[in-house]
Write a protein that binds this DNA or RNA. Structure first.
Length: 324
DNA sequence: ATAGGGTTAG
Protein backbone atom coordinates (compact mmCIF):
# COMPACT_ATOMS: atom_id res chain seq x y z
CA UNK A 1 0.00 0.00 0.00
CA UNK A 2 2.92 2.23 0.75
CA UNK A 3 4.28 1.94 -2.77
CA UNK A 4 0.95 2.91 -4.32
CA UNK A 5 1.34 6.49 -3.19
CA UNK A 6 0.18 8.75 -6.04
CA UNK A 7 1.01 12.42 -6.68
CA UNK A 8 -2.41 13.84 -5.64
CA UNK A 9 -2.18 12.00 -2.32
CA UNK A 10 1.42 13.04 -1.79
CA UNK A 11 0.54 16.71 -1.84
CA UNK A 12 -1.96 16.29 0.99
CA UNK A 13 0.09 14.06 3.28
CA UNK A 14 1.94 15.39 6.32
CA UNK A 15 5.68 15.75 5.92
CA UNK A 16 6.68 13.04 8.39
CA UNK A 17 4.63 10.50 6.44
CA UNK A 18 6.20 11.52 3.16
CA UNK A 19 9.63 11.26 4.75
CA UNK A 20 8.82 7.82 6.09
CA UNK A 21 7.80 6.84 2.57
CA UNK A 22 11.11 8.15 1.20
CA UNK A 23 13.08 6.23 3.81
CA UNK A 24 11.11 3.08 3.06
CA UNK A 25 11.55 3.43 -0.69
CA UNK A 26 15.29 4.11 -0.51
CA UNK A 27 15.86 1.26 1.93
CA UNK A 28 14.48 -1.25 -0.58
CA UNK A 29 17.21 -0.41 -3.05
CA UNK A 30 19.92 -3.02 -3.44
CA UNK A 31 21.72 -1.50 -6.42
CA UNK A 32 22.47 1.79 -8.12
CA UNK A 33 19.89 0.90 -10.74
CA UNK A 34 17.25 0.44 -8.06
CA UNK A 35 18.28 3.74 -6.55
CA UNK A 36 17.78 5.52 -9.87
CA UNK A 37 14.38 3.86 -10.13
CA UNK A 38 13.41 5.10 -6.67
CA UNK A 39 14.66 8.53 -7.64
CA UNK A 40 12.39 8.58 -10.70
CA UNK A 41 9.37 7.52 -8.65
CA UNK A 42 10.03 10.16 -6.04
CA UNK A 43 10.26 12.81 -8.74
CA UNK A 44 6.82 11.82 -10.02
CA UNK A 45 5.36 12.48 -6.58
CA UNK A 46 6.18 16.19 -6.93
CA UNK A 47 7.19 16.37 -3.30
CA UNK A 48 7.23 19.67 -1.41
CA UNK A 49 10.59 21.42 -1.63
CA UNK A 50 11.91 20.41 1.78
CA UNK A 51 10.84 16.80 1.42
CA UNK A 52 12.42 16.73 -2.01
CA UNK A 53 15.73 17.90 -0.52
CA UNK A 54 15.33 15.24 2.16
CA UNK A 55 14.75 12.60 -0.53
CA UNK A 56 17.85 13.66 -2.47
CA UNK A 57 19.89 13.48 0.75
CA UNK A 58 18.68 9.98 1.47
CA UNK A 59 19.40 8.86 -2.09
CA UNK A 60 22.84 10.41 -1.86
CA UNK A 61 23.61 8.73 1.47
CA UNK A 62 22.48 5.38 0.12
CA UNK A 63 24.59 5.89 -2.98
CA UNK A 64 27.62 6.66 -0.79
CA UNK A 65 27.04 3.49 1.22
CA UNK A 66 26.84 1.31 -1.89
CA UNK A 67 29.81 -0.37 -3.57
CA UNK A 68 32.51 2.27 -4.17
CA UNK A 69 32.45 2.45 -7.96
CA UNK A 70 33.02 5.24 -10.45
CA UNK A 71 29.33 5.02 -11.41
CA UNK A 72 28.24 5.50 -7.80
CA UNK A 73 30.60 8.46 -7.46
CA UNK A 74 29.24 10.23 -10.54
CA UNK A 75 25.62 9.57 -9.61
CA UNK A 76 26.35 10.89 -6.11
CA UNK A 77 27.80 14.05 -7.61
CA UNK A 78 24.74 14.59 -9.78
CA UNK A 79 22.45 14.16 -6.76
CA UNK A 80 24.55 16.57 -4.73
CA UNK A 81 24.39 19.17 -7.50
CA UNK A 82 20.60 19.09 -7.39
CA UNK A 83 20.47 19.98 -3.70
CA UNK A 84 20.07 23.75 -3.37
CA UNK A 85 21.71 24.21 0.03
CA UNK A 86 23.70 21.09 0.83
CA UNK A 87 23.98 20.37 4.55
CA UNK A 88 27.04 18.82 6.20
CA UNK A 89 25.25 15.49 5.82
CA UNK A 90 25.20 15.96 2.02
CA UNK A 91 28.86 16.96 1.86
CA UNK A 92 29.78 13.98 4.01
CA UNK A 93 27.89 11.58 1.80
CA UNK A 94 29.47 12.92 -1.38
CA UNK A 95 32.96 12.80 0.16
CA UNK A 96 32.26 9.21 1.13
CA UNK A 97 31.02 8.34 -2.36
CA UNK A 98 34.09 9.87 -4.00
CA UNK A 99 36.44 7.55 -2.12
CA UNK A 100 36.67 4.94 -4.88
CA UNK A 101 39.79 3.07 -6.00
CA UNK A 102 39.00 4.13 -9.57
CA UNK A 103 39.10 7.77 -8.56
CA UNK A 104 42.88 8.24 -8.21
CA UNK A 105 42.73 12.00 -7.87
CA UNK A 106 41.92 13.21 -4.41
CA UNK A 107 38.48 14.58 -5.38
CA UNK A 108 37.10 13.83 -1.95
CA UNK A 109 39.85 15.88 -0.37
CA UNK A 110 39.20 18.77 -2.77
CA UNK A 111 35.54 18.77 -1.84
CA UNK A 112 36.48 18.83 1.84
CA UNK A 113 38.73 21.84 1.16
CA UNK A 114 35.92 23.57 -0.77
CA UNK A 115 33.68 23.05 2.25
CA UNK A 116 36.28 24.58 4.57
CA UNK A 117 36.86 27.55 2.26
CA UNK A 118 33.14 28.26 1.96
CA UNK A 119 32.98 28.47 5.76
CA UNK A 120 29.68 26.62 5.93
CA UNK A 121 28.44 24.07 6.62
CA UNK A 122 31.05 23.18 9.22
CA UNK A 123 32.76 19.83 8.89
CA UNK A 124 32.10 17.32 11.65
CA UNK A 125 33.68 14.01 12.64
CA UNK A 126 31.89 12.22 9.78
CA UNK A 127 33.41 14.63 7.27
CA UNK A 128 36.93 14.04 8.53
CA UNK A 129 36.47 10.28 8.86
CA UNK A 130 35.17 9.94 5.27
CA UNK A 131 37.85 12.25 3.89
CA UNK A 132 40.53 10.23 5.69
CA UNK A 133 39.13 7.05 4.21
CA UNK A 134 39.35 8.63 0.76
CA UNK A 135 43.00 9.56 1.39
CA UNK A 136 43.72 6.03 2.58
CA UNK A 137 42.13 4.61 -0.57
CA UNK A 138 44.16 6.75 -2.99
CA UNK A 139 46.50 6.66 -0.93
CA UNK A 140 47.39 10.30 -0.38
CA UNK A 141 49.67 10.84 2.58
CA UNK A 142 50.17 14.61 2.16
CA UNK A 143 46.45 15.32 2.00
CA UNK A 144 45.88 12.98 4.94
CA UNK A 145 48.41 14.87 7.04
CA UNK A 146 46.65 18.12 6.25
CA UNK A 147 43.40 16.55 7.38
CA UNK A 148 45.11 15.50 10.58
CA UNK A 149 46.19 19.02 11.49
CA UNK A 150 42.84 20.51 10.49
CA UNK A 151 40.96 17.92 12.51
CA UNK A 152 43.12 18.84 15.48
CA UNK A 153 42.40 22.56 15.04
CA UNK A 154 38.67 21.91 14.75
CA UNK A 155 38.62 19.75 17.86
CA UNK A 156 37.48 16.71 15.88
CA UNK A 157 40.57 14.61 16.59
CA UNK A 158 39.19 12.87 19.70
CA UNK A 159 36.45 11.07 17.72
CA UNK A 160 37.24 7.34 17.64
CA UNK A 161 36.29 7.29 13.94
CA UNK A 162 38.75 10.08 13.22
CA UNK A 163 41.39 8.27 15.28
CA UNK A 164 41.02 4.99 13.42
CA UNK A 165 40.80 6.91 10.16
CA UNK A 166 44.18 8.51 10.88
CA UNK A 167 45.70 5.28 12.10
CA UNK A 168 44.52 3.45 9.02
CA UNK A 169 45.70 6.19 6.67
CA UNK A 170 49.23 6.04 8.12
CA UNK A 171 49.22 2.26 8.17
CA UNK A 172 48.17 2.10 4.51
CA UNK A 173 50.83 4.65 3.60
CA UNK A 174 53.39 2.44 5.35
CA UNK A 175 54.09 5.17 7.89
CA UNK A 176 54.12 2.75 10.79
CA UNK A 177 55.75 5.18 13.22
CA UNK A 178 52.96 7.70 12.64
CA UNK A 179 50.35 4.96 12.84
CA UNK A 180 51.85 3.74 16.10
CA UNK A 181 51.77 7.21 17.64
CA UNK A 182 48.04 7.48 16.88
CA UNK A 183 47.53 3.96 18.19
CA UNK A 184 49.44 4.74 21.41
CA UNK A 185 47.33 7.86 21.87
CA UNK A 186 44.14 5.81 21.75
CA UNK A 187 45.03 3.94 24.95
CA UNK A 188 41.60 3.18 26.42
CA UNK A 189 39.73 3.43 23.12
CA UNK A 190 41.64 0.76 21.24
CA UNK A 191 38.94 -1.24 19.60
CA UNK A 192 38.94 -4.13 17.17
CA UNK A 193 39.36 -1.82 14.19
CA UNK A 194 42.33 0.03 15.71
CA UNK A 195 44.11 -3.21 16.60
CA UNK A 196 43.43 -4.72 13.17
CA UNK A 197 44.59 -1.63 11.38
CA UNK A 198 47.85 -1.44 13.34
CA UNK A 199 48.58 -5.15 12.90
CA UNK A 200 47.83 -4.74 9.19
CA UNK A 201 50.27 -1.83 8.99
CA UNK A 202 53.11 -3.83 10.54
CA UNK A 203 52.34 -6.82 8.38
CA UNK A 204 52.22 -4.67 5.21
CA UNK A 205 55.75 -3.33 5.74
CA UNK A 206 57.10 -6.73 6.69
CA UNK A 207 57.53 -5.98 10.42
CA UNK A 208 56.18 -9.41 11.18
CA UNK A 209 57.44 -9.70 14.74
CA UNK A 210 55.78 -6.42 15.66
CA UNK A 211 52.58 -7.59 13.97
CA UNK A 212 52.58 -10.89 15.85
CA UNK A 213 53.50 -9.26 19.18
CA UNK A 214 50.63 -6.86 18.74
CA UNK A 215 48.30 -9.76 17.98
CA UNK A 216 49.27 -11.24 21.36
CA UNK A 217 48.85 -7.87 23.10
CA UNK A 218 45.41 -7.58 21.57
CA UNK A 219 44.29 -10.85 23.09
CA UNK A 220 45.87 -9.90 26.40
CA UNK A 221 43.84 -6.70 26.26
CA UNK A 222 40.70 -8.80 25.92
CA UNK A 223 39.82 -7.74 22.37
CA UNK A 224 38.66 -10.66 20.24
CA UNK A 225 40.15 -10.76 16.75
CA UNK A 226 37.82 -11.39 13.83
CA UNK A 227 38.34 -12.58 10.25
CA UNK A 228 39.66 -9.20 9.14
CA UNK A 229 42.31 -9.18 11.87
CA UNK A 230 43.29 -12.71 10.96
CA UNK A 231 43.96 -11.83 7.32
CA UNK A 232 46.78 -9.55 8.47
CA UNK A 233 48.06 -12.05 11.03
CA UNK A 234 48.14 -14.88 8.48
CA UNK A 235 49.76 -12.55 5.99
CA UNK A 236 52.49 -11.77 8.57
CA UNK A 237 53.10 -15.52 8.98
CA UNK A 238 53.34 -15.83 5.19
CA UNK A 239 55.88 -13.03 4.99
CA UNK A 240 57.89 -14.60 7.80
CA UNK A 241 57.75 -18.01 6.12
CA UNK A 242 56.82 -19.30 9.56
CA UNK A 243 55.00 -22.56 8.93
CA UNK A 244 54.61 -23.72 12.54
CA UNK A 245 53.31 -20.35 13.58
CA UNK A 246 51.00 -20.21 10.56
CA UNK A 247 49.56 -23.61 11.39
CA UNK A 248 48.99 -22.65 15.00
CA UNK A 249 47.28 -19.43 13.93
CA UNK A 250 45.08 -21.45 11.55
CA UNK A 251 44.22 -23.76 14.47
CA UNK A 252 43.39 -20.66 16.51
CA UNK A 253 41.01 -19.48 13.77
CA UNK A 254 39.19 -22.82 13.83
CA UNK A 255 39.13 -23.01 17.62
CA UNK A 256 37.63 -19.53 17.92
CA UNK A 257 35.08 -20.23 15.23
CA UNK A 258 36.29 -17.30 13.13
CA UNK A 259 34.67 -17.36 9.69
CA UNK A 260 37.09 -18.34 6.97
CA UNK A 261 35.70 -16.06 4.28
CA UNK A 262 36.95 -15.24 0.80
CA UNK A 263 39.72 -12.94 2.00
CA UNK A 264 40.91 -15.15 4.83
CA UNK A 265 40.92 -18.23 2.58
CA UNK A 266 43.09 -16.33 0.09
CA UNK A 267 45.49 -15.31 2.85
CA UNK A 268 45.68 -18.95 4.04
CA UNK A 269 46.38 -20.21 0.50
CA UNK A 270 49.17 -17.67 0.18
CA UNK A 271 50.58 -18.54 3.60
CA UNK A 272 50.61 -22.32 3.03
CA UNK A 273 52.09 -21.90 -0.44
CA UNK A 274 54.87 -19.63 0.81
CA UNK A 275 55.60 -21.84 3.79
CA UNK A 276 55.98 -24.91 1.59
CA UNK A 277 52.72 -26.76 2.27
CA UNK A 278 51.15 -26.53 -1.18
CA UNK A 279 48.77 -29.40 -0.47
CA UNK A 280 47.27 -27.54 2.49
CA UNK A 281 46.90 -24.51 0.23
CA UNK A 282 45.02 -26.68 -2.23
CA UNK A 283 42.72 -27.98 0.52
CA UNK A 284 41.81 -24.44 1.55
CA UNK A 285 41.22 -23.53 -2.11
CA UNK A 286 39.01 -26.56 -2.73
CA UNK A 287 36.92 -25.78 0.35
CA UNK A 288 36.05 -22.28 -0.86
CA UNK A 289 32.44 -21.62 -1.77
CA UNK A 290 33.24 -18.56 -3.86
CA UNK A 291 36.48 -17.42 -5.45
CA UNK A 292 37.51 -14.11 -6.90
CA UNK A 293 40.48 -13.28 -9.13
CA UNK A 294 42.79 -12.89 -6.15
CA UNK A 295 41.86 -16.30 -4.76
CA UNK A 296 42.48 -18.00 -8.13
CA UNK A 297 45.74 -16.09 -8.52
CA UNK A 298 46.99 -17.01 -5.05
CA UNK A 299 46.44 -20.67 -5.90
CA UNK A 300 47.99 -20.43 -9.38
CA UNK A 301 51.02 -18.48 -8.14
CA UNK A 302 51.43 -20.93 -5.26
CA UNK A 303 51.47 -23.92 -7.61
CA UNK A 304 53.89 -22.13 -9.94
CA UNK A 305 56.24 -21.36 -7.02
CA UNK A 306 56.32 -25.04 -6.24
CA UNK A 307 57.27 -25.90 -9.79
CA UNK A 308 53.84 -27.40 -10.45
CA UNK A 309 53.40 -25.67 -13.79
CA UNK A 310 50.90 -28.17 -15.17
CA UNK A 311 48.68 -27.91 -12.10
CA UNK A 312 48.91 -24.14 -12.27
CA UNK A 313 47.85 -24.14 -15.93
CA UNK A 314 45.03 -26.61 -15.21
CA UNK A 315 43.65 -24.29 -12.50
CA UNK A 316 44.05 -21.35 -14.86
CA UNK A 317 41.98 -23.14 -17.52
CA UNK A 318 39.30 -23.93 -14.95
CA UNK A 319 39.24 -20.27 -14.00
CA UNK A 320 38.83 -19.20 -17.63
CA UNK A 321 36.04 -21.71 -18.20
CA UNK A 322 34.09 -20.35 -15.26
CA UNK A 323 34.47 -16.77 -16.43
CA UNK A 324 32.21 -17.21 -19.46
C1' DA B 1 16.57 14.49 10.71
C1' DT B 2 19.55 11.30 8.27
C1' DA B 3 25.51 8.15 8.53
C1' DG B 4 30.86 5.91 10.08
C1' DG B 5 37.07 2.91 10.92
C1' DG B 6 40.12 -2.53 9.57
C1' DT B 7 41.41 -7.51 5.23
C1' DT B 8 44.63 -10.69 0.79
C1' DA B 9 48.48 -12.59 -4.59
C1' DG B 10 52.59 -11.06 -8.13
Amino acid sequence: MHHQLKPPEAATLPRHLLEAHVVWLVRQCRSLRALRGAHARLLRLRLPRLTHAFALSKLLASCAASAPTAAAASYARSLFDQIPEPTAFCYNSLIRALATPSNPTADAFLLYRRMLRAGSPSPNSFTVAFALKACATVPALGEGRQLHSQAFRQGLEPSPYVQTGLLNLYARCEEVALAKSVFDGMAEDRNLVAWSSMIGGYSRVGMVNEALDLFRDMQAAGVNPDEVTMVSVISACAKAGALDLGRSVHAFIDRKGITVDLELSTALIDMYAKCGLIERARLVFDAMVERDTKAWSAMIVGLAMHGLAEDALAIFSRMLQLKD
